[in-house]
Amino acid sequence: MTTVGLLYPGHSAEDDYPRIAVLLDSDVRLPLFHTDIGEDAHREDALIEMGSAARLAAGVEELRLAGAESVMWACTSGSFIRGWDGAHEQIRALAQAAGLPASSTSFGFVHAARALGVERVAVAATYPDDVTACFGEFLEASGLEVTSTRASGIVTAAEVGTWEREQVLELAKAGDDPRAQALLLPDTALHTVAHLAELEAVLGKPVLTANQVTVWEGLRLADRRAWADGLGRLFVRPDWDRPEWKPDGERDPAGNEARE
Rank of each mutant, 00 (worst) to 15 (best):
L185G: 02
P186W: 14
T188R: 00
T188M: 06
T188N: 13
A189F: 03
L190I: 01
H191S: 08
H191C: 08
H191W: 07
H191V: 03
T192L: 03
V193R: 10
V193A: 00
V193M: 11
A194H: 14
A194I: 01
A194W: 06
H195P: 01
H195L: 06
H195E: 11
H195W: 13
L196K: 01
L196V: 06
L196M: 06
A197L: 09
A197C: 04
A197T: 15
E198G: 08
L199W: 06
L199Q: 09
L199E: 05
L199S: 09
E200G: 12
E200W: 13
A201R: 15
A201S: 14
V202H: 13
L203W: 04
G204S: 01
G204N: 05
G204K: 09
G204V: 05
K205P: 05
P206C: 05
P206L: 00
V207C: 13
V207H: 10
L208E: 03
L208I: 06
T209N: 05
T209A: 15
A210C: 08
A210F: 05
A210P: 02
A210E: 07
N211M: 04
Q212A: 03
Q212K: 07
Q212H: 01
Q212V: 03
V213I: 08
V213E: 11
V213L: 02
T214L: 07
T214H: 09
V215I: 10
V215S: 09
V215K: 13
V215H: 12
W216L: 04
W216A: 13
E217T: 03
E217V: 00
E217R: 13
E217A: 10
E217W: 04
G218L: 12
G218C: 01
G218K: 12
G218H: 06
G218V: 09
L219T: 06
L219S: 10
L219F: 11
L219D: 09
R220L: 00
R220M: 12
R220A: 10
A222G: 07
A222K: 04
D223T: 13
D223R: 15
D223V: 10
R225V: 13
R225A: 14
R225D: 12
A226W: 00
A226I: 04
A226E: 15
A226Y: 10
A226N: 05
A226D: 02
W227H: 12
W227P: 07
A228W: 13
A228G: 11
A228K: 03
D229F: 11
D229H: 12
D229E: 14
D229A: 14
G230Y: 08
G230A: 03
L231A: 09
G232C: 05
G232A: 02
G232R: 13
G232Q: 01
R233Y: 01
R233W: 02
R233I: 00
L234A: 04
L234Q: 08
L234W: 01
F235R: 04
V236M: 08
R237C: 15
R237Y: 01
R237S: 10
R237M: 14
R237G: 07
P238K: 08
P238T: 03
P238W: 06
P238L: 07
P238G: 07
D239Y: 08
D239E: 14
D239R: 14
D239T: 11
W240S: 02
W240N: 10
W240R: 11
D241E: 06
D241A: 15
D241S: 14
D241V: 02
D241K: 11
